[in-house]
């Protein structure tokens, strides 16, 4: 069994080789997590893109899936807490039952480490999920869809988690005195948001900024911008005056804003952090 961390453009990707015996037990442990049998396309970007898992023949037959599974980055990283729990449990059992389980736990931890190390700073400037601490709040659209707020609370209000009675849609940069003016690729919108208090994804916000949100900026070239916010089990967003939701244009729950169906918002600019003191004004 081979687990390849699809991360590099020029250099060979890191590979973790696992013996067949251990692999069979490992796949058994991972089976319930639906990490195997996934074959989603990898995001088209530089930096860490995801895991490619080549299964032993016996495991592929047992689960009725192809031998090669592709697990995009955020799908894999979303499993880190579950993988950590499994590793903890296996290590404890391993002390009593035998070394094989402890070996599996070690491999799972290696996977976690590899995912964690490859995520931060692996994409172009301003553009990767972060190693910084942030809060993933539960997806709760009701307050945003209240008739008193739905019309003027747009994606920027939702992304920054600043619900208010705005007279019109708030815009990046207004609160700090200069609104964005260019919608070519998102750099100007990101700069305006930074002036309002946002940080690049690799530039951590202090604990005093809790709740801190990880947001993703996308661009409809020349026309508009849009934000998504990372939440407990998904990414939430509020397209203009429409209801807040956690689904994309195809109706699928959003697990990765860089690859989800975004309609005309074709440019994925990158990730940023927004904290409690983010200033948002209309």
């Amino acid at each position: 069994m081979q687990i390849t961390f699809d991360a590099y453009s020029g250099r060979p990707n890191p590979v973790l080789a696992v013996s067949d015996t251990i692999a069979a037990a490992l796949v058994e442990a991972l089976g319930d997590l639906r990490l195997i049998g996934v074959s989603s396309p990898m995001p088209n970007r530089l930096g860490y893109r995801g895991l490619e898992i080549e299964l032993p023949v016996i495991s592929a037959l047992r689960y009725g899936v192809g031998r090669i599974s592709q697990v995009p980055a955020l799908v894999a990283s979303a499993h880190i807490p579950i993988l950590t729990t499994i590793a903890d449990v296996l290590e404890r059992i391993g002390e009593f039952v035998g070394k094989a389980l402890a070996e599996i736990a070690r491999i799972i931890r290696a996977i976690i480490d590899a995912i964690s190390k490859l995520l931060p700073g692996s994409a172009p400037a301003g553009g990767a999920p972060t190693s910084c601490a942030y809060e993933r709040l539960p997806f709760d659209p009701a307050p945003w869809n209240d008739a008193a707020f739905i019309r003027t609370n747009n994606c920027y209000a939702y992304g920054s988690n600043k619900r208010a009675s705005y007279p019109r849609k708030p815009q990046p940069g207004i609160a700090s005195g200069r609104m964005f003016s260019d919608l070519t690729d998102g750099a100007d919108v990101a700069a305006a948001s930074r002036r309002d208090g946002a940080h690049d994804a690799g530039d951590c916000l202090p604990d005093g900024e809790k709740p801190r949100g990880l947001v993703a900026l996308v661009i409809w070239p020349g026309e508009d911008y849009h934000w998504y916010r990372h939440q407990s089990n998904c990414w939430g967003h509020k397209p203009g005056s429409t209801p807040a939701r956690n689904t994309d244009e195809s109706g699928a729950v959003i697990l990765d804003p860089s690859t989800c169906d975004r309609g005309p918002y074709s440019i994925f600019h990158g990730y940023m952090l927004m904290g409690k003191s983010q200033r948002v004004a209309a």
Partner: peptide
């Protein structure tokens, strides 16, 4: 015209 997410429509 309801078309934009961020900018005013």
């Amino acid at each position: 015209m309801n078309i934009y997410s961020g900018r005013p429509d």
